[in-house]
Design a protein around this nucleic acid. Structure first.
Lengths: 153, 153
DNA sequence: TTATTTGCAAAGTCTTTGCAAGCAG
DNA sequence: CTGCTTGCAAAGACTTTGCAAATAA
């Protein structure tokens, strides 16, 4: 369930240099926050800013926003949206074809469970044929009640 | 592809009365905008406000927000999110079990194509068993290039 | 050196809220 | 009548932007 390869902080300098971006402490530490939380955290810019403060890195919030957006553009982070009013991000899979990682969102406790699935291939084929639509990625969310909550509703 | 039964404006008064809400011209006209656009439009509060202005209904924007939210709570509208920075809504299916209506989103022209599918039942069963998670609804989005755009990329 | 990046504060966008006046039931 | 609803303006949450000072290459 977790063999997905994620971007590693040690490769940051190279990736930035490829695009003529500079390697700053801000960029390194922001990425490190995601690497340290790779166990399935979905962090907002505010979250990252707060975690950095706890580590005594007092970067400007605007800098955090700018660099999260940059890491997203570079494919290092992926945006995920749980409809809670703020953009959230997670480390992206290195292999762009591995886009089969989705979320179960508990309507009661708001817990987010990750899961991996390969059931959608036939559906993608069906869509490609019937809609003449070339699929690049898909996003699947299941809303419901997790094991802790489902009997308490 | 379009046999889904949608909520009808003529049933609004009854639905509102059931919950002791009043039937106001604002509520009727807001719902009417969605009914007139039932051919697959996904409207933001701002969109609805604008369409109403064109029809010479100059309601406050806050009223539009409040009533779209009300219609959403009553199950008359459904929120859809295309990650474009604002909440969008569409008429909900009357039958709550019919939640198998999803979207293909073109990355180039931003066109949204609706489709209906029934492929996810087995995946839901798999999740229920393996994650002890009781699914209420799911949301599926496919990102890619539509027939008009896929050869121009 | 020099163009990029940062930090701050101000501004922007979407949405919600407080409150007096208006209106449906 | 009476409490729900509206409209307005103000406030709020999240995010972006302008600009001078700092800094990576």
């Amino acid at each position: 369930m977790r063999e997905r390869q994620l971007f590693e902080p040690k490769n940051l300098r190279k990736k930035l240099a490829q695009h003529s971006y500079k390697t700053t402490p801000q960029r390194k530490e922001i990425l490190q926050v995601f690497a340290d939380n790779s166990g399935g955290c979905h962090l907002s810019a505010e979250d990252v800013h707060e975690i950095l403060s706890e580590k005594n890195f007092d970067f400007g919030l605007a800098t955090v926003y700018r660099n999260i957006e940059l890491l997203n553009e570079l494919g290092i982070l992926t945006k995920v949206d749980f409809g809670d009013g703020c953009a959230r991000y997670e480390l992206a899979a290195i292999d762009p074809d591995v886009h089969n990682h989705h979320h179960l969102i508990c309507l009661k406790c708001k817990k987010v469970i990750e899961f991996k699935e390969d059931f959608l291939d036939e559906l993608e084929e069906f869509i490609a044929e019937n809609f003449d639509f070339q699929i690049v990625n898909h996003e699947v969310k299941f809303f419901g009640y997790c094991s802790d909550c489902k009997d308490k509703v």
